[in-house]
Simulated scan of single mutants.
Amino acid sequence: MKDLKEYTIPFVGLKVGNHLFEYKVGKEFFEHFEFDEFNETNLAVELNLLKKTTMMELSFTINGTININCDVTNEPFDQYIEAEHHVVVKFGDAYNDEHEEILILPHGEYELHVAQYVYETSVLAVPSKRVHPGIEDGTLNSDVLDKLEELSIKENNDPAGEETDPRWDTLKKLLNDK
């Protein structure tokens, strides 16, 4: 991850107080993590670093669009995402990132790498089920949707014309005889 140097913050030289860092995240950023589920990305990341004398607070705000494929039709579409993530950075004897909101850095550390936090927050902001908006509002015309409609099970809502299995009828009588 040598190419992600802009995501390294040398916090030793910063004064106590708020510091704002802004990043534009494209597809190349995710390629460093060998993540290829996004076709294109256009994300804006704002990192507010509040430096205190004994600790730091990081507040990530991520918003923008990613181009992904629909889970139903495999058609690409732009999905808007927005996410926030807060991390408290403390200093201790050894590096520890077991907790998702607390990071412990060794006392001699002088810089902080935030690329992993940007990556994880962005990926987790994507909905687990990716459905093209054209499917929900009915405007998407796709061969896949036509085939799914053709192969879908048609429900028969007419109970009078419905034939039932006589074996099940006997069991239904047991339920009704209570």
Rank of each mutant, 00 (worst) to 15 (best):
G134E: 06
V87M: 07
H32L: 03
K172T: 11
Q116D: 12
D97I: 03
G26P: 01
P166Q: 04
K24D: 11
P127W: 07
A94P: 00
K51I: 05
V16A: 08
D177K: 15
N141S: 14
D137L: 06
E82C: 09
E120G: 00
N18P: 07
F29T: 01
K129E: 13
L43M: 06
L148H: 02
I102K: 06
L174M: 15
D78Y: 08
Y23F: 15
L174H: 11
T164V: 14
D177L: 13
I81H: 05
L20H: 07
I81D: 02
K52G: 04
A115M: 07
Y95Q: 05
T61E: 12
V72C: 13
E149L: 07
E28F: 04
V114N: 03
H19T: 10
I135Q: 02
H99W: 08
E100G: 10
E162Q: 14
V25K: 02
G134L: 05
L148E: 01
N42W: 03
G17P: 08
K154V: 08
N48A: 07
E98S: 15
V126N: 09
N67V: 14
N176Q: 15
F21G: 04
L43V: 01
K173Q: 15
L148R: 03
D93V: 07
K5C: 11
H19S: 09
A94D: 13
K51R: 12
S152W: 07
E28V: 12
L112F: 12
Y80W: 03
D97Y: 08
F38V: 00
N18L: 11
T53G: 00
L174R: 11
L50H: 05
S152E: 03
D97V: 02
E75G: 02
E100R: 10
N42V: 01
L20F: 05
N42C: 05
L50M: 09
V88E: 14
E149Q: 05
P10V: 10
